[in-house]
């Protein structure tokens, strides 16, 4: 009974996720190809770009640009499913190769940033509950709100100014060194940590106002034990959802961070593609980002009921006889 209902939930969520992926692809495709009037053809025919007729014909044939839009979409999507992400207009290389080449650097950056974000967020949250209220707590509690008002690029520039130019802890000329990666991850992760910390602190405060918190306190638990046993778990559960949502944030933020720190990755790939109107690359990256986002959120949704007993199927409330 319990297993079957979870299976049903799993299947429903899976279908939903697939629908969202298909719709996201369609939306992206339409934005690029239809709304502003087929930018690929426009670009190919622009004499400034210097495509010869011999070069144009196979590209038009590949994308089926002379075919009706639904057919183009279907072609494009079925290629996407098989892993063919198209050909870059700028470099004439397969997009899949470009993405694969850029991916590792961004993965390292994003996962370190997420680690930084979680560490900072939990440290702030711990301090917000356990430091003496007069000093410490007040300052700690205002950190997330303030850092949410600071643009990502400022954090990056500030870190470079201070740690690269003033203190010489890393060199901007070797962006893939461990030190440079650490500071880039810091720049990317701090805004995310502020978001997570805000939610965490709100939840911790909420838990501290609950009846069961006072009742547990009346059982003689110490401040630390109360934090560990009665605040942390239920407050951390929403963080699972937040991590899933942060995936999009980290991907988007990588554009700015990679630009500032001079890293080569998905962000810089998008940057150059946008500058060169290289739409097959943009379509591929956006579609892949949507797939990753949907997959991670699906995972979070599926894990959530396992972490929160209230969301598990009720085992039938046995008897009202007190």
């Amino acid at each position: 009974m319990k297993a079957r209902s979870y299976l049903g939930f799993l299947l429903r969520r899976l279908v939903q996720a697939l629908v969202v992926v298909v719709l996201s692809y369609t939306a992206t495709f339409l934005i690029i190809n239809v709304l502003p009037g087929d930018p690929i053809t426009n670009m190919l025919l622009d004499p400034d770009n210097g495509f010869s007729q011999a070069e144009i014909a196979p590209i038009i044939a590949y994308y089926g640009l002379d075919r009706p839009v639904p057919e183009q979409l279907w072609n494009s999507f079925s290629r996407f499913v098989t892993g063919d992400l198209g050909i870059s207009l700028r470099s004439n290389l397969p997009v899949a190769g470009l993405v694969l080449e850029a991916l590792p650097s961004t993965l390292v950056l994003a996962s370190s940033a997420l680690t930084v974000a979680l560490l900072v967020a939990f440290a702030l949250a711990y301090g917000s509950q356990n430091l003496p209220p007069r000093w410490g707590q007040g300052i700690l509690r205002s950190i997330p709100a303030v850092s949410l008002a600071v643009p990502t690029f400022i954090i990056g520039i500030f870190l470079i100014q201070l740690f690269a130019f003033q203190l010489g802890l890393f060199r901007i000329t070797s962006p893939d060194s461990a030190a440079a990666t650490f500071f880039a991850a810091l720049a990317l992760g701090l805004p995310v940590s502020a978001q997570i910390a805000e939610v965490l602190i709100t939840n911790l405060d909420h838990e501290a106002r609950q009846d069961y918190f006072a009742v547990a306190r009346s059982r003689g638990l110490s401040r630390g034990a109360l934090f560990r046993r009665h605040q942390l778990k239920s407050s951390s559960l929403p963080v699972v959802t937040m991590i899933a949502l942060a995936v999009g944030e980290l991907l988007g933020g990588s554009l700015i961070t990679e630009a500032i720190f001079g890293r080569k990755g998905i962000g810089s790939l998008v940057q150059s593609a946008a500058a060169a109107q290289d739409f097959p690359v943009l379509l591929a990256v956006v579609a892949l980002a949507a797939v990753v986002f949907v997959a991670v959120n699906l995972l979070a949704d599926l894990v959530y009921p396992l972490l929160d007993p209230r969301l598990r199927r009720r085992r039938g409330t046995a008897g009202d006889a007190a």
């Binding site: 069961y212 009742v215 239920s234």
Partner: peptide
């Protein structure tokens, strides 16, 4: 306590 439904931590 007054309200037993809220007096125990729901996730433990």
């Amino acid at each position: 306590p007054q309200d037993p439904q809220n007096a125990l931590n729901p996730v433990r």
